[in-house]
């Protein structure tokens, strides 16, 4: 990835989510938070409804997600993750906690037991707003059957075998479509494999 693409301005009309997040993170900027809320809360609500939450629960958990974004904003680092990646993690974990009522084990970046990458620069792929846009573009270019399979994998709390039943396809076909879609995204994000 070149420096030039990393520092490029966001496309006209695209809300600059990184700028909003940084304003919230550094200055507790309520106006920026309001903008971020207007952008993400309805999307997070839709995500939760796809996972089986009713209107009321999805509304409440979407508000809770954005409240956590505000409270954890000091941990946001634009060099490490795009705002959408960060908010996805919060929404996903809240869904597992409140809808599925399970714990969500995660590794702790501060853990003394953590094995770090020998080359620290490689431990984190730099992910910016532009990379989020590139992944969205890559998704748009996927063949419709791959796009549908990957959407179902992220938006319905179902194992691949149930997705296969739902689409009336053999499990192997569904798995390979999901694999191909993910491979394309990894390529977009500069995966060398």
């Amino acid at each position: 990835m070149s420096q030039a693409s990393r520092s490029a301005e966001p496309a006209a009309g695209t809300p600059d989510l990184v700028t909003m997040m940084v304003a919230i993170s550094e200055r507790k900027d309520r106006a920026a938070f309001s903008q971020l809320f207007e952008h993400f809360a309805p999307r997070v609500k839709a995500y939760l409804m796809r996972h089986g939450a009713n209107n009321e629960t999805a509304e409440e958990l979407a508000q809770e997600t954005l409240l956590r974004v505000w409270r954890k904003a000091h941990l946001f680092d634009p060099a490490v993750a795009a705002p959408s990646t960060w908010i996805f993690r919060i929404a996903r974990n809240l869904r597992i906690d409140r809808i599925r009522r399970e714990r969500r084990p995660e590794f702790d970046p501060e853990d003394p037991a953590l094995v770090r990458e020998a080359d620290p620069a490689a431990d984190h792929q730099i992910q910016t707003n532009q990379e989020g846009a590139r992944v969205r573009a890559a998704i748009d270019l996927l063949p419709p059957d791959q796009k549908k399979a990957i959407m179902l994998s992220f938006f319905e709390d179902k194992p691949h075998s149930e997705i296969a039943d739902e689409l009336g396809l053999p499990l192997g076909t569904v798995k390979s479509r999901i694999r191909l879609a993910f491979a394309r995204v990894r390529q977009t994000l500069g995966d060398e494999r």
């Binding site: 993400f40 997070v44 993750a81 959408s84 990646t85 969205r136 748009d140 990957i150």
Partner: peptide, 19 residues
């Protein structure tokens, strides 16, 4: 991390539900 970036992009691209 790449799977989560994909998740974020999918949330961003998904039709929203009115609050």
């Amino acid at each position: 991390e790449k799977a989560e970036t994909l998740g974020g992009a999918l949330i961003d691209a998904t039709p929203s539900a009115a609050m």
